[in-house]
Amino acid sequence: MAKVLVVTSGKGGVGKTTSTAALGAALAQSGQSVVVVDFDVGLRNLDLVMGAERRVVYDLINVTQGDAKLSQALIRDKRLDTLHLLPASQTRDKDALTEEGVAKVMEELRAKFDWVICDSPAGIERGAWLAMRHADVAVVVTNPEVSSVRDSDRIIGLLDSKTLKAERGERMEKHLLLTRYDTGRAERGEMLKVDDVLEILSIPLLGIIPESEEVLRASNLGTPVTLSNPASTPARAYSDAAKRLNGESITMMVPQNRRSLFGKLFGRKAA
């Protein structure tokens, strides 16, 4: 039974695309068939983060409009046979993506894959609405920062009212993915703590992704961080999060700053 997951946040730049790629790769590594779908019409980037930007021929809108078959638009990952990408269009016409068109593609994807992961555009407009519309599960990506938490709260409200699942009167399964977290700064009272964000948003925690240079390195290389350096702290945090999505119960690790000794020696200035 396929599961449709939306990666959303409201605010831009918090790590939706990075998280989509990393979670998608981690789920595909467990042997399940996965497709990551870029809903950011006009500003596609998932192809770049996945390292498939030169292989894009057809896109989501071509498929919804019947200009290409789904099989022609899907890009199979070169590193993982079970991982696929459906890229977004670069067109400026955002209305080119219709509700009916998306519904048809989602139905086809559900039949083909174990996981359909929708990378939502930022904002609360039509694109974000279409991305969350068919979701069974939502991952709300949040930074420990006031504007991100506020926008996440809005998105949670929309997930509970504007999705097909909510309209059927069912409960939308929502998970919090806290990204760019710095344990040291949180402990010193400089950054919202995990518990602060959990208390405010009151949805269950899927994972804590530490602020890490590995994340930028992975996007530079066009490789999901879970593939580029599986032993790194962000990759392990993403892999654990993927396992939790699969229903496994994994103890939550609060990422420790690798430079904690350095930090202790040089005090606050080192942070």
């Binding site: 506020r150 949180a186 009272g189 400089e190 405010i200």
Partner: peptide, 15 residues
């Protein structure tokens, strides 16, 4: 140094 509690309180009131 301890700006996080201020952030938490502001968010709780606003939300």
């Amino acid at each position: 140094r301890t700006s996080a509690p201020v952030a938490r309180d502001r968010l709780q009131i606003l939300l």
